[in-house]
Design a protein around this nucleic acid. Sequence first.
DNA 1: ATAAAACTTGGAGTTTACTCTAAGTCAAAC
DNA 2: GTTTGACTTAGAGTAAACTCCAAGTTTTAT
Lengths: 128, 128
Amino acid sequence: MTITEVSEKYDVSQDTLRYYERIGLIPRVNRNKSGVRNYTEEDCNWVEFIKCMRSAGLPIEVLIEYVGLFQKGDATIGARRELLTEQRKQLAAKMEDMKKTLERLDYKIEVYEQRVVVKERELKRSED
Amino acid sequence: MTITEVSEKYDVSQDTLRYYERIGLIPRVNRNKSGVRNYTEEDCNWVEFIKCMRSAGLPIEVLIEYVGLFQKGDATIGARRELLTEQRKQLAAKMEDMKKTLERLDYKIEVYEQRVVVKERELKRSED
DNA sequence: ATAAAACTTGGAGTTTACTCTAAGTCAAAC
DNA sequence: GTTTGACTTAGAGTAAACTCCAAGTTTTAT
């Protein structure tokens, strides 16, 4: 696949794809004889995986480390598992915080609903 | 309360507190005769609220708008409720995405666990 | 065959959200 | 009474994560 196709498929700009590759956030993509990137299915999977992890807020630095470990082969399986476990923990904690914020928003919205009703009654009274 | 006290209480730097006020992310804090900020309890509540909403990822722009509406008084109650409702929706959607990412991490970790076990067995065999 | 489109690289520029600096004021401690 | 420390402002600087640009291929279409 070309960079255009990958960019469209995963809704990631070409510049971002090149940038991610440059900083090691995805492994290097092979080029054809004239230097043009040819994304394999595995490359695509990396793009999709990184997009997903980034959107959940995993730090770029950590993901670069993960890719680095991956490229070092099977000897790093334990380290990769540990890295993911730590990130999983942090993600779960963040979601807990967000849940509390969500509940707080719900409460605030509820209070506003009531105030809107009060406001409407006031308006109605002033019509009389 | 002084800016130092507020900064310590909510773990937000003094610079950030001034910055938030400057851009209208919290209402203007009153100063004493010599120009020093004196945070009321309401000011503190704003700091805490904004800190919470920001940590959940609500955009600064939107929060500035919310503060602006608040300062316009009761006529904006409906608009404020709508704004919060929209943000609540987006937050819930983001949490849904994060939940999928979390599950994906769980799956990946599980697969890694199995591979670690396989690796250990290999090592054991090579010991014999 | 030549113009237009798509790609390459390295490096500069942008945006967001702070964070720091400089220059100055004011109150309190010694 | 002066120096130390906390505060003020306006504006400059920074880090992260892109995003854009320039100059140069290569491929595609006419």
